[in-house]
C-alpha cells in the first residue's frame, strides 16, 4: 500500500490573517499545517497499518517554509516527505497547484506504483475544496471526495459522504484520489519518539524542472484568474451589549424590529 498525502502550509486560523500585494501573507511564526490535512494523514496511516505494509509520502507545494507541514506529517508517522518548491510556482491558481501535485504523484508513481492519493476536504486559507477533484482529473484517476467513512477491499475503495443534504455511497477502483472530511477520523497525537525523529528527518525538495512542469501551466503565468484587489473589511461597530435582567429577550426583539430585520 503506497499512499501520497498532500499537505498544505497555511496561516493559522487563530492568527491575524491577511494579504500583501494580493497574495496571502505566509510567515513562519503563524504558518502551520492545514489542520484538515491531519485527517488525511490519519486516514493514510490507518490504511497502511491495516495492510501491514506500505509507505505514506507527504507532499507539499509551498515556499521553503512549507517544510513545517512536512514535519507535522513526520510527527504523525509519515515515512517520506517531498517539498515541491520553486519561484515559478508562486501565484498558482487551483489548476496550477493541481498540475504541480499531479506531476509529483506521477514522478513518485514512476518509481513504484502509488495506490492512493489522500487529501483533506479543503485548505483552511482558500477553502475552495476543488484541488482534489482537479488533481484526479490531471492524473486521469477517479476522485472520491468528502469521505466520512472509508472502506478498502479487493482493490476498490467505497466511501460514505454526507454533503448538501445528500448521503451517498460511492465506490471506485485503485488508484484514485480520496479526500476525507473532518468527521472521518480523529488525527492521532504525535508521540515523543516520532517528535524527536521528525526534527532531523530529511525531506526531498523538488523544483518545477525536476517535475518537467511547463512554465505556462503553473504559477502566475498559468493562472486563469488575476486577483485585482484584497482589502480588509472595515471593523464592525462596537457591539451593543445588553445584560439580561429579565428583559434581554425583549431587547433582542427590539433590536431586530428597530433595524427592520423581522
Amino acid at each position: 500500500m503506497r499512499i501520497v498525502v498532500t499537505v498544505k502550509y497555511v496561516p493559522d486560523i487563530a492568527s491575524d490573517r491577511g494579504f500583501q500585494d494580493c497574495r496571502v501573507v505566509r510567515t513562519p511564526a503563524e504558518g502551520t499545517i492545514n489542520e484538515l490535512d491531519e485527517n488525511a494523514i490519519e486516514a493514510a496511516l490507518q490504511l497502511v497499518e491495516a495492510a501491514g505494509e506500505g509507505e505514506v509520502v507527504a507532499v507539499s507545494v509551498a515556499g521553503p517554509d512549507g517544510a513545517v507541514a512536512l514535519r507535522k506529517a513526520f510527527q504523525m508517522g509519515a515515512h517520506r516527505g517531498v517539498l515541491v518548491s520553486d519561484d515559478a510556482l508562486a501565484g498558482s491558481d487551483y489548476f496550477g497547484t493541481a498540475a504541480a501535485l499531479a506531476a509529483t504523484v506521477e514522478r513518485l508513481n514512476a518509481d513504484a506504483p502509488v495506490d492512493l492519493v489522500i487529501t483533506g476536504m479543503a485548505a483552511l486559507d482558500g477553502l475552495g475544496s476543488v484541488v482534489p477533484t482537479l488533481l484526479a482529473a490531471h492524473l486521469g484517476w477517479p476522485a472520491l471526495n468528502l469521505a466520512k467513512k472509508v472502506a478498502l477491499a479487493d482493490g476498490a475503495v467505497t466511501i460514505t459522504r454526507e454533503a448538501d443534504d445528500v448521503t451517498e455511497e460511492l465506490s471506485a477502483r485503485l488508484p484514485l484520489v480520496l479526500s476525507v472530511a473532518d468527521t472521518a477520523n480523529k488525527p492521532r497525537l504525535p508521540n515523543f519518539k516520532l517528535i524527536m525523529a521528525a526534527r532531523t528527518k530529511e525531506y526531498e525538495t523538488w523544483s518545477a524542472a525536476d517535475l518537467a512542469l511547463k512554465p505556462d501551466a503553473v504559477g502566475q503565468a498559468g493562472a486563469r484568474t488575476e486577483t485585482l484587489s484584497a482589502a480588509p473589511r472595515p471593523p464592525r461597530d462596537e457591539v451593543e451589549l445588553v445584560t439580561d435582567k429579565g428583559e434581554g429577550g425583549k431587547a433582542l426583539a427590539a433590536f431586530l424590529i428597530r433595524n427592520d430585520l423581522v
Binding site: R236, V239, E240, V242, T243, D244, G249, L252, F255
Partner: peptide
C-alpha cells in the same frame, strides 16, 4: 464580532424574543 449581544441564559432570552416578534 457581534452587532448586538445579550449576556444571559438562552432558555430565558430566546422564548421572550420569540414572543415579542
Amino acid at each position: 464580532i457581534s452587532d448586538f449581544a445579550v449576556v444571559g441564559d438562552l432558555a430565558d432570552v430566546l422564548p421572550q424574543a420569540a414572543e415579542v416578534i
